[in-house]
């Protein structure tokens, strides 16, 4: 079966450690899905490229054509990987804006792997205190392992939770198994299938 993977990175610089982590997670998830017999299309989404469109979406109430394509990619994906830098003890404002303008049902029952980067390992609970509740609110299925990468992880990576590579592989395995046991997402189009008026009248 063909599976699609949407990979959102909110990194701002180039090269970006956030994007690097996103690519590592995407690669590991692809391997795991392929091991389960799937063909994988991975779609990287750099929020920086859509920064102005995201603000305009907030101001106008509708997305630009390019941002609509991003929304569609996320909605159709079998699994989603999101990676944000840690800003002021939370996800970045750009990252939050992206979740703010998503359709409120876009992530329902969607397997999501949350990940973050930060200037020090002391920020790592941003995943549990900020990202996990946000995606739980959006009714996503957040996999148990969340991945945080601090500067030292790109070196020898020896931490109490094991090396970064080990955490990436564990998270990717969890995400792939959640995606694999689901049917591909169905997109509800209220314009194609409106609620019949008799049902609306019946309240």
């Amino acid at each position: 079966m063909r599976r699609t993977l949407a990979v959102v990175s909110a990194g701002l610089r180039q090269p970006s450690s956030t994007r690097m982590l996103a690519d590592r997670l995407a690669g590991a998830t692809r391997r795991e899905l392929e091991r389960l017999g799937a063909e994988v299309d991975a779609h990287p989404i750099e929020l920086r490229e859509h920064a102005h469109d995201l603000v305009n979406n907030l101001l106008l109430g509708y997305p630009s054509r390019e941002l609509q394509e991003v929304h569609d990619t996320v909605a159709r994906a079998d699994a989603l990987i999101v990676v944000t830098p840690t800003f002021a003890a939370s996800y970045s404002g750009l990252f939050k804006t992206f979740t703010d303008v998503l359709d409120e049902t876009a992530l329902v029952d969607k397997p999501v792997l949350i990940a973050a980067t930060g200037g020090t390992g002391r920020h790592s609970l941003v995943l549990e205190h900020a990202l996990r509740p946000l995606f739980s609110y959006l009714r996503a299925v957040v996999v148990p392992t969340a991945v945080f990468a601090a500067p030292e992880d790109w070196g020898d990576g020896g931490t109490a939770q094991g090396s970064l590579v080990h955490r990436i592989d564990r998270a990717a395995g969890e995400l792939a198994r959640e995606a694999d046991r689901r049917d591909p997402p169905t997109i509800n189009d209220p314009f194609a299938d409106p609620t019949p008026f008799e049902d609306l009248l019946g309240g």
């Binding site: 106008l60 109430g61 509708y62 054509r65 209220p190 314009f191 409106p194 609620t195 019949p196 008026f197 609306l200």
Partner: peptide, 23 residues
């Protein structure tokens, strides 16, 4: 709101879209 387009259609009334603000 697709419900309102549906409502206009149900009664055979007119439907006006204020397309000033949307693409």
């Amino acid at each position: 709101s697709p419900e309102i387009a549906e409502q206009a259609a149900y009664y055979g009334d007119g439907f006006l879209h204020n397309n000033v603000l949307w693409p």
